[in-house]
Design a protein around this nucleic acid. Sequence first.
RNA 1: GGGGGCAUAGCUCAGCCGGCAGAGCAGCGCCCUUUUAAGGCGAAGGUCGGAGGUUCGAGUCCUCCUGCCCUCACCA
Length: 527
Amino acid sequence: MADRSESGPDTDRRPINEQRRRRIEKIAELQALGIAPYPDRFPRTHTLAEAAALPEDARGLALAGRLILRRRFGKLTFGHIQDHDKAFQIALERDKVATGSLAGKEAYAVFQQLVDLGDFIGCEGDLMRTKTGELTLAVQRFTLLAKSLRPLPEKWHGLRDLELCYRQRYLDLIMNAETRARFALRRRVIAAFREGLDREGFVEVTTPTLVPTASGALATPFVTRHEALDMPAYLRIAPETYLKRLIVAGYDKVYEFAQSFRNEGMDPSHLQEFMLLEYYCAFWNYEDNMRFTERLLPAVITAATGSPVVKFQGREIDFTPPWPRIAFRDALARYAGAAPEDFPTLAALRAEVKKRVPEAAGIEHMGRGNLLDQLYKKCVRPQLAGPLFLVGHPIELSPLARRSDADASLTDRFQVLAGGREIVNAYSELVAPLEQRERFEEQMALRRAGDAEAMAAEDDYLLCMEYGMPPTSGWGLGLERFLCLLADRENLRDVVFFPFMRPQSEAGGAAEAAPGDTGAAPAPQGV
RNA sequence: GGGGGCAUAGCUCAGCCGGCAGAGCAGCGCCCUUUUAAGGCGAAGGUCGGAGGUUCGAGUCCUCCUGCCCUCACCA
């Protein structure tokens, strides 16, 4: 797009802002001086972090960044330019600076009057040290790289308004180093998981996000429509059954960072769109998997944060292995004083849950598994600081998990608990196709009985299983929840760049203008 | 979905018992060659989220609406 198009019609319908209008005027003034407001490139020699590591007599640097601070004196100006990783001081002297075809006083005036905080600029010059010892680029030539039209948030307090941080994350990232650090942590954690899994021989794969049946978890899917096939389609709620198909296909070890979608309530601990990391390993059982988990998580945490000890909500959680193991039944008995065998009938258990968790809804429709789960979630889990392995979950809670050989009412399943939260859910997979079909049918019966959580059956997956699935153990982790633990954050939105927000018009509640209705006097036509 | 809280200049925030709409930063005009949120002087900048109501008078009190935060329920 040609530079001059920027001085063309201004169709922004939002209330006129004085500063924005002034900056648009500056574009024309720059162009009149032969200065392009949006040039196409700048040959940068170093990032700002690289520049900061150079010897202080380094010469001939070309640095680029967003101008974020400026301290003007009469004939000397200090400023800071910022790139993603670093802010760096620049100094311009009136009689020693140039831009475009201008030099000295005229070039200096361009910097003072036509360059604004928020603009991207390129700066060429030599390093020096100021009287106060700060490594600084003495700028001989600067180049405007992009004119910004809106003022940045406050330079000292940054962007504080939570709603603006979510809606305009780019401003949050520009202004708040803590936010940048949080997303750098996300990047490091993902890289560390990849490294840990790759080194173990796992293969990263991609499976469908758009699916004909939402399976693999107990959740309400987002529904959409496949027009060409004239059928409903769903966004996946988990990658599980597709990854297991690949196990059947002969991949021994697969994993996926699977963006998943669940159409359920919004609160600080639930996102509609989130990332599940799942892996599956053929020939492992859940015990093998626990041993690997005990190696993988400390390695990832240490790689990402520098220590296996996580500080969370004022507590220290040490992931150094080994971690204690506790059976689901024992946890209920010890922390809730209510072992499952104390309530042999559904009615007795239901009465107990009603007594202890009176606020829970839908108790009448819950099966035995969900009733026990209520007791666990409300009375036991909050007390578990961890890290620890919770094992031996009731079979009703785990329709895709292998039945325990020792106790038919239990599954070969474990969860990793830390900070009162479930970090990992894993089990020996159910690989027997006929039993899987029965378990799905039990879920469908629960569904018909009113338990909305029960899992949907998936015939295509059952077909796949009938060709033979090796013994396998699978593992899943909610990436955002894990990141919140490492970043000591309560709200999952804090570790997602652009959380889903209800749209809001910029006019502050005014109705959306119809197309073509500019709502303001159009600016003069350019070109 | 229930309950509680917040919404004032581009940003960060004051605004008392209902009585002229405020500050800092940013921006604008001046002064200033070593600053670190530079400093000094000056002039601007507002649909107090929106719509009603009470009142002589509403940023302030009441009702409704919108958005966000917290919390409970549901869910990972």
